[in-house]
């Protein structure tokens, strides 16, 4: 555990009966980062978050959150950690203001001044009468008010219209930038909305079928992935997919064209590398990829590998 890590896990795993929902995972989330936790449905994102927050006990392995063992997190720890989830059960009978007033005395650093107004939340409306977007905004307001060192959000944008989504992100970023903590606020956010996340995430954790595929800074990731199109000389023979390097994902070829995803394209000698494999290449086009396209490519590649193993 380094001081600079807000979250660190060591072989953290979870099993329900005979079903392994999370294979041993070791990762580190730097302090002050905005870390996107991505993966398709059932990848284990929510389980990982619940293990980190001691909502569920791990089957094996360990984790530390803000320097404390995750399995030893108690109520007092949550004065530094804020958690928002799309599925969280709220005290539906309370009004928005009543909810904020109730939570305030639990936190020594509570300050909800202008927060409800900034988020356009009706103070007198009961939580049960709020729309999905409003509920999420109320939940966000209830954690931003105490300026946590770590914010964990589980699918906060799911099912929200773009306007509400932008408002949530804007408020979140405004508040975490205002934080006086020299190490900054760390945000761990799981989401399917990769387009939105890419605009402000600094790190990415990728889970697939309960396994950690990678965890790295977003700029490194986007630098690493390129969608490559190679024009081939008709006289040459295109190589069989099995002979391609392992870092070339989802290859699709015609006699005159080879298209693939390069997952290790940050090298300065990319073209030389491709010419070495494909001597009959005429031209090479390497396009940068969005987080969404990287995500889709990795999922498809994983499925293809699973099928070929089967």
């Amino acid at each position: 555990m380094t001081v600079a890590s807000a979250i660190e896990t060591t072989a953290l795993a979870k099993t329900y009966g005979k079903t392994q929902v999370l294979y041993p995972i070791s990762l580190s989330v730097p302090r002050g980062s905005v870390c996107a936790l991505v993966g398709h449905n059932g990848a284990g994102k929510t389980t990982l978050i619940k293990l980190l927050l001691n909502i569920l006990p791990p089957t094996s392995g360990s984790a530390t959150v803000l320097g404390e063992s995750a399995s030893a997190l108690t109520g007092a720890s949550f004065t530094r950690i804020g958690y928002v989830s799309e599925n969280q059960e709220m005290p539906e009978w309370m009004t928005v203001q009543g909810f904020m007033d109730y939570l305030g005395p639990f936190y020594p650093t509570w300050n909800d001044k202008n927060l409800l107004a900034d988020l356009d939340l009706p103070p007198d409306r009961k939580l049960k009468h709020l729309s999905r977007g409003m509920r999420m905004k109320a939940a966000l307001a209830s954690i931003l008010a105490f300026r946590p060192q770590l914010i964990v959000m589980d699918e906060p944008f799911s099912g929200l219209d773009p306007l509400v989504r932008d408002q949530l992100i804007e408020t979140l970023l405004d508040r975490i930038n205002d934080n006086s903590d020299p190490l900054g606020t760390t945000v761990l956010i799981s989401s399917h909305d990769l387009g939105e996340i890419e605009s402000f995430a600094s790190h990415v954790i990728f889970l697939h079928q309960g396994r950690l595929l990678f965890t790295e800074p977003l700029d490194t990731l986007t630098a690493r992935f390129r969608e490559v199109t190679v024009s081939l000389s008709p006289s040459g023979t295109s190589p069989a997919p099995l002979n391609l390097p392992a870092s070339w994902l989802l290859p699709e070829s015609t006699p005159s064209l080879l298209r693939f995803i390069h997952s290790n394209a940050q090298t300065n000698f990319l073209e030389e590398q491709i010419y070495a494999v494909l001597p009959n290449a005429i031209s090479i086009q390497a396009e940068p990829m969005t987080l969404r396209t990287i995500f889709l490519a990795l999922v498809k590649s994983s499925h293809r590998q699973d099928r070929s193993r089967a």
Binding site: K50, L53, I55, L56, T74, G75, A76, S77, F78, T79, I81, G82, Y83, S85, N87, Q88, E89, M90, P91, L103, F106, Y107
Partner: peptide
């Protein structure tokens, strides 16, 4: 059940409640 002990979705389990 206002602060239900069963389940993992209750708001209060990630709030500074002392049991």
């Amino acid at each position: 059940h206002d602060e239900s002990l069963v389940g993992d979705r209750q708001f209060w389990v990630t709030r500074p409640y002392a049991w």
